[in-house]
Write a protein that binds this DNA or RNA. Structure first.
Lengths: 216, 216
DNA sequence: GCGAACAAAATTGTTGACAATCTTGTCTGG
DNA sequence: CCAGACAAGATTGTCAACAATTTTGTTCGC
C-alpha cells in the first residue's frame, strides 16, 4: 500500500516528512542528483532528523533516492536506459492489468473510460498537451484500478514515480500526442469489447511506441 | 538493489539487524502473524531499537512485515489470493526476462542452463523434492540474471521473498515435480533456441500451471 | 451480572546528544 | 612541483531517555 502524500492532516511526523519530501521530488523542486542532507531537510520541514531518516529509507526502497553508507542521500537520476527498462516492466504489468480489467469491467466503468477517450480526443484537437498528459495519466490509473490486481498496481505506482522527469519531456514533444491518442483509443476499445487478449496487445503496442519515443 | 543478507561481515548495526531479521522471516523462524516487538528484537540481535526500527521500515516496504501506527509490527501473512496475484505478476515479469534472455544468452550460459536441466531431471528421478526445489529456484534466478533487465530482477526478488511459505507447500506436493519438470525443460529449450516468443510462452505456461496448483 | 469510565502497563514515536566515518584542505618531505 | 600523511570539518550512524498512544485489567454505578 503506497503512502499517500497528504500533508496538513494530523499525521505523524515521519509520515508528514515522507509526504512532503516525496511531493517535492516528484514536483521537481529538488534538482536531479541534488544532495539531501538530513539536518537541512529536518529544519526545512520542521521535524527531527529521525523522521527524515525514516522517510529517506522508505524513499530509497521506492527508488526515488539513493543512499550511500556514511555519505548521504541524493535524488536518484534515471538514465534513459533505465527509463526504457522501467517502461518494459510497465509494458508487461499494465498488459496484465488491462487483460484483467477487460474481463471484469462494469458498464458504468466502460462509460467512464469512453468519456475519458472523448476528453483526450478534444485535448489533442485543441492542442493542449498538458491537459492531454493529465488525462493520459488518469486513463492508465483507471485501467489499473479496474483490474483489481492490487499487487500489480502497487508495483506500477512505484515504477511510475521514477519516471516523472521523463514523462514531461515526452508529453511536450510535437506530434507525440497524435500518435499516442490512437493507441489509447484502441486500448479503450478493446476493454469496452471485454476482449482480454486484445486489451493486453493494445497496451503492449502503446508502451512499445513509448519506448521507441524515449530512445529519441 | 536488494540488501544482501550477509551477517557476520563487518556491517553496520542496521544492516546486520536487517539481514538477520530478513533471514529469520524467510527461514520461517518467525511464525506467521507473529508480533515483532522492537525491544525484544533489539535485545535478541544485540543492537539498539533505532537499528531495528530502520530495518522494520525497510522490510515493510519490501512487503515482508506489516506495521500499524502505534500498534507495532508483525510478519505479513500472504493469503492464497495474494499469492496468486503475486504469481500473476511474476508470470509477466519472468516472461519479459525470459524473452530478453533468449535474445542475449551466450553459448556458455546455454550450457549452464542445460546442465541445470539434467540436474533437475536427476533430482526428480531420484525422488528428492527438496533438491529439486533448490534447483528450480536457481534456474529462475539464472534466467533473470541472463536477461540483464535490472529493474525486472529487482521487482521479482521482492515478489519472490513474499512467497517463501507457499513455495515450500508447493514443492512437497506429490506429483507436482513431475509436471513442473517438463515445463522447466521447455523453458530451457526455448532459450537455448534463442526464440524470445517461445521462451516467454514457456514461462507463462509454467507459471499458469503454478497458479492452478496454488489454488488447490 | 453488565457496561462504561478509569487507571496501569506495554509499546511505539520522538528528541537531543554522542560516536564513527567520510571528505576536504593543508602541510611536510622528497 | 608532487605524493602521501595528517588534521579539521561535515555528515551520517548509534544510543539512551522521554513523550504519546494504544491496549488491557479493574473498579464503580446501574
Amino acid at each position: 500500500m503506497p503512502n499517500q502524500a497528504r500533508p496538513g492532516t494530523g499525521e505523524q511526523a515521519k509520515q508528514l516528512a515522507l509526504g512532503q519530501l516525496r511531493e517535492a521530488i516528484l514536483r521537481g523542486d529538488m534538482a536531479p542528483a541534488q544532495r539531501l542532507v538530513e539536518n537541512e531537510l529536518a529544519e526545512q520541514f520542521g521535524v527531527t532528523r529521525a523522521s527524515i531518516r525514516a522517510a529517506l529509507i522508505e524513499l530509497e526502497s521506492q527508488g526515488l533516492v539513493e543512499r550511500i553508507r556514511n555519505r548521504g542521500s541524493r535524488v536518484r537520476v534515471v538514465t534513459v536506459e533505465e527509463a526504457v527498462a522501467i517502461t518494459e516492466c510497465r509494458l508487461v504489468l499494465e498488459g496484465l492489468c488491462a487483460a484483467k480489467a477487460a474481463a471484469a469491467v462494469t458498464d458504468a466503468q466502460v462509460t467512464e473510460l469512453k468519456d475519458l477517450g472523448t476528453s483526450m480526443r478534444k485535448a489533442v484537437a485543441d492542442g493542449e498537451p498538458l491537459t492531454y498528459s493529465d488525462l493520459n495519466h488518469e486513463l492508465h490509473a483507471r485501467i489499473r484500478e479496474f483490474s483489481g490486481q492490487l499487487t500489480a498496481v502497487e508495483l506500477l505506482e512505484r515504477l511510475n514515480a521514477q519516471l516523472v522527469r521523463h514523462r514531461f519531456q515526452l508529453a511536450l514533444r510535437p506530434g507525440r500526442p497524435q500518435q499516442s491518442l490512437s493507441e489509447h483509443l484502441a486500448m479503450i476499445e478493446a476493454i469496452a469489447a471485454r476482449d482480454p487478449q486484445a486489451a493486453e496487445a493494445a497496451v503492449r503496442a502503446h508502451l512499445t511506441s513509448v519506448i521507441e519515443a524515449l530512445r529519441d
